[in-house]
Simulated scan of single mutants.
Amino acid sequence: MLTIAISTFNKRIDFLNDYCFDDRVFYLINWQSPINYNFKLPDNVKLIQLNTVGVACSRNAAIDFCQTPWIWFMDDDVVIPNDSISQVLGLIHSANQNNVFISGVKSPEGLDIKSYNLSCSDNVRSILSVGTIQIIANATAIKNAKVQFPTNMGAGTENNLCDEPVFLHRLSKTIKNLKFVFPSGLYVIHPLERSGSVYSTKGSVRSRAMLFREIYGLPLCVFASIYFLCRHRKQIGKFWIYLFSFKRAS
């Protein structure tokens, strides 16, 4: 009923040596690497070796290879508590295809990295800071909608951020009455460092411009960039010009 699709690359595949697989769900390990490793994996785990670059390509492969109705996108440095898996299995048991569940994120020390006060929303602004590891969605609905992650955005590309909200925005435009649901108590554990807090590189700044163009279109994206620049001028610094490049997300 649920596939947890873990993206990894090169020698980071060694995370499998210590990973605790839950036998209540299926796993897809999407491994971007030319290296040949031999792993003995449980029956509910499938390893897919990819010759692509960029995490968005890995996510898209996960959608293609997913054979369960629901998918949870995941990274190799994230811990999913057993209680969170139990909660998700309960949620999707009677959920509509147009529900996208968004988990919270805690640090290993128990600090809230991402938490939400709202319980449900159809407003795209509510998901602008959502990371891929928080997304539990209906794989069947995604395939039917023919929506994919933008392959020129995200980790592993020069525009290293914002692939997640672009993907979710495309879903919201394609799937009628799509709802973003933020279940109380649902969370994953991730190291405190986050790429989303980095503004001082060309790629990270340009990613925001691409996101604004995707969501607001021209010319409104210009005003979104101006607002963002006013809020984060110190962090953006000399790279401010890239906030107005407005390259298209592919």
Rank of each mutant, 00 (worst) to 15 (best):
2 L>S: 10
5 A>M: 03
5 A>P: 00
6 I>R: 03
7 S>G: 03
8 T>D: 01
10 N>D: 15
12 R>Y: 14
14 D>T: 14
19 Y>E: 13
21 F>M: 07
22 D>Y: 07
29 I>R: 04
35 I>S: 12
36 N>M: 06
38 N>H: 12
49 Q>P: 02
50 L>A: 04
52 T>E: 15
53 V>W: 08
54 G>P: 01
56 A>M: 10
61 A>Q: 12
66 C>P: 05
69 P>Y: 02
70 W>R: 05
73 F>Y: 06
76 D>Y: 05
76 D>R: 09
78 V>C: 12
84 S>E: 02
84 S>Q: 06
84 S>F: 06
86 S>P: 00
88 V>N: 07
89 L>I: 09
91 L>I: 13
96 N>K: 13
99 N>Y: 14
101 F>W: 09
103 S>L: 09
104 G>R: 10
106 K>Y: 14
107 S>R: 05
108 P>H: 13
108 P>S: 15
109 E>F: 09
113 I>D: 09
117 N>S: 13
121 S>K: 08
133 I>W: 13
138 N>P: 08
142 I>M: 05
146 K>L: 15
152 N>E: 09
157 T>N: 07
165 P>H: 04
166 V>I: 15
171 L>W: 08
172 S>L: 02
173 K>Y: 02
179 K>S: 14
179 K>G: 01
181 V>N: 12
184 S>V: 05
184 S>Y: 12
184 S>K: 09
186 L>K: 03
187 Y>P: 04
187 Y>K: 09
190 H>R: 14
192 L>R: 06
195 S>L: 04
200 S>I: 00
200 S>V: 00
203 G>P: 09
203 G>C: 08
204 S>L: 01
206 R>T: 13
207 S>Q: 04
208 R>S: 03
210 M>C: 13
217 G>Q: 06
217 G>M: 08
224 A>Q: 15
227 Y>H: 09
227 Y>Q: 04
228 F>G: 02
232 H>K: 15
232 H>L: 00
233 R>E: 06
239 F>N: 15
241 I>C: 13
244 F>P: 02
248 R>K: 15
